[in-house]
Amino acid sequence: MPIYFFWGNDEFRLKKAVVMLRSSTLDSDWASFNYDRIDPDAANGPMQALNQAMTTPFGFGKRFIWLADTSLGQRCPEEIMTEMARTLPLVPETSVLLFTSANKPDGRLKSTKLLKTHAEFREFATLAPWQTDQIVDQVKRAAQEMNLRLKPQAADLLAEAVGADTRRLYNEIEKLSLYWSDDQGAPKTEPLPPEIVSQLVTVSTQTSFQLSEALIAGTVDQALSLATDLLANNEPALRVVATLVGQFRRWLWVSVLEAEGERDVNAIAKAAEINNPKRVYFLQKQVRGCAPAQLQRALELMLELEYSLKRGAPETITLQTKMIEIASCF
């Protein structure tokens, strides 16, 4: 299938996939003639991409057309929709047409339905911090891709250190690979032990989940310190807020259901949208001594914080002020 639609907010992984697809498509000697990247601000960008896709490549290899950061998955003018319906079924095997977007395509749109008929969709969404099993799997896949064997404990430690940051993950694996090689530069056959990860990789213990625990414990100083460290580590304030809202929403569900006498962990997990019912026990332990009203008030303050940040309020002072107010609820 010569048509692809890559979407997701993991920019590093998405661009890495674009480079791999481009490399497998183009002949290196003819790449400058057969590669077109069309940015979102280009006049009639989608029309240009569709026209180029129908053009015979020069020399050897195929033609590669990349419509970057497209909004066709969110809105599509009628004239472009008409042209896509006419052109997409006819794109020759000598062309590869790639659409990319940070946003998830709206499945209700005619344009998305049309694209799904003719294109291969791939998702590159950033994993949530609580998806620890998936983060470990991501570490193992990246290590395997770069021919680095890891002991299970080393993979766990590396996952803890980098979290869902795929750019840092590949940088750290590259560093570990250089260290864990023989005199000829070939990777060692024995798995890399966790001690090496501890020596070479800085483990950042400041996470949004630790911030949520500091807030529910009412420890203002710790909450302020963690919030400051998260911003210093280039963690976007809105992403911090999104994690806090998700965690406090789960706590609120658990607290409310417990107050109503619900004891079935599967029922609680379903209501709180918790994939693993075993997590319910730990959430119950964390909210012990907290009233639902306290958690509800904390969520209200977080929504106020999100609103302020989206309106352009200064990140540091806005986040710190709300952390004090939220921690004071407990």
Rank of each mutant, 00 (worst) to 15 (best):
Y4H: 15
N9G: 01
S23A: 09
S23Y: 00
D27F: 12
W30M: 12
D41P: 05
T55G: 02
T56M: 12
W66D: 06
S71Y: 08
C76K: 07
E78R: 14
R86F: 06
P89R: 06
V91H: 03
V96C: 12
F99A: 01
S101W: 11
L109R: 11
T112M: 09
L114V: 05
L114P: 03
E123G: 03
A125P: 00
T126H: 09
L127P: 08
L127T: 09
K140I: 13
M146L: 07
N147F: 11
L148T: 05
R167C: 09
I173P: 05
L176S: 04
W180C: 00
Q184S: 07
T189N: 00
L192C: 02
P193I: 01
V197Y: 07
V201M: 05
S204L: 11
T205V: 12
Q210R: 15
I216H: 11
G218P: 01
D221Q: 10
V245L: 09
F248L: 10
S255P: 02
S255A: 15
L257H: 01
L257E: 01
A267V: 10
E273Q: 13
L283S: 05
Q286H: 04
P292A: 02
A293R: 12
R297L: 10
A313F: 05
P314I: 06
P314W: 01
E315Q: 08
T316S: 13
I324E: 12
F330G: 05
